[in-house]
Design a protein around this nucleic acid. Structure first.
Lengths: 151, 151
DNA sequence: CTCAGTGCTTAGGTATACTAAGGACTGACT
DNA sequence: AGTCAGTCCTTAGTATACCTAAGCACTGAG
């Protein structure tokens, strides 16, 4: 039937349910973002953490792991990379010494802002070429899907 | 416990540009999908490959690596996992014996369909609870973003 | 003051990605 | 024919990021 498969944009065919379309698009975008990443820089997860800390202030490890939908042990490793690079610090929570508060260093905050801006250049350029209606659809979809992902 | 930050859905604040919103949403969804994955099953990339092969028929390794925005060496490893699990086979291209055609086995095709359906259950349920307008916005956003990711 | 529960970390394993290097093959030019 | 640059694929070694399991440190209740 579908011999001209190359026009299908790999997974966004109509036969797939909406969930499948979302999953395909997310996978493609995620890998695309990763392929744009210059070497010697922070990974996406580490950068996300830095951005959250910058916006929200210090967070405990468990909070961060829940934010990212990741096991605490995984987040601990990501935080290790940030602290050993000097972009974040761990501080024992004075009220409950089982907890550790993670916060950005000034260098970490600067890096988060700078790297985000740089990495978004390509994508922003693409998005600004779209019609306002299309941009609005994307804005709405992002809000909806973020809510779903975080639930 | 609950700071004001927990209502922000982590990255979808208005101050971020559209590119940043997309990136945040993609990261959250990708990790969420991964966290839903049962153990002992194929990874997302391997499953994507299986799905593409099922839809499009045999592809060369280079084609697959371009589809996924990944280096050929990386795709070779993913294909190794599929072939060693019996879900795909490599066939030398009779016209150009440098090339290798990768195709699904019947088991691979079955698995691709079954696993996709199973993994999409959660997401489809969420999406069907949305209004038709919201669903349409997501459909449109997926198509647009897939095109951008693949360009 | 004991002890179950909570928060974090380390250890070991998997999936996925990269670069670098090399083997096999093709096609074009001597 | 013979050579050889270019293409396609693979393997090897390394890095990020995720997991579960195990264990330590601390808290708070009995």
């Amino acid at each position: 039937m579908e011999t001209e498969a190359s026009r299908e944009h790999l997974g966004t065919t109509e036969e797939a349910g909406l969930g499948g379309q979302v999953r395909s698009a997310v996978g493609l975008l995620y890998r695309r973002f990763r392929s744009e990443r210059p070497e010697g820089t922070l990974g996406d997860t580490a950068l996300d953490v830095l951005t959250w800390l910058h916006k929200q202030g210090p967070r405990t490890l468990t909070q961060l792991s829940e934010d990212a939908h990741v096991a605490p042990a995984s987040m601990s490793q990501s935080v290790n990379r940030l602290t050993s690079a000097g972009y974040a610090i761990r501080t024992p929570d004075p009220n409950d010494r089982r907890k550790v508060l993670i916060s950005t260093t000034p260098e970490g905050a600067d890096l988060a802002l700078a790297t985000r801006a740089q990495r978004n250049t390509w994508l922003d350029g693409r998005l600004q070429a779209l019609s306002p209606e299309d941009q609005h659809a994307i804005t709405r979809a992002c809000a909806l899907l973020s809510t779903i992902a975080g639930s």
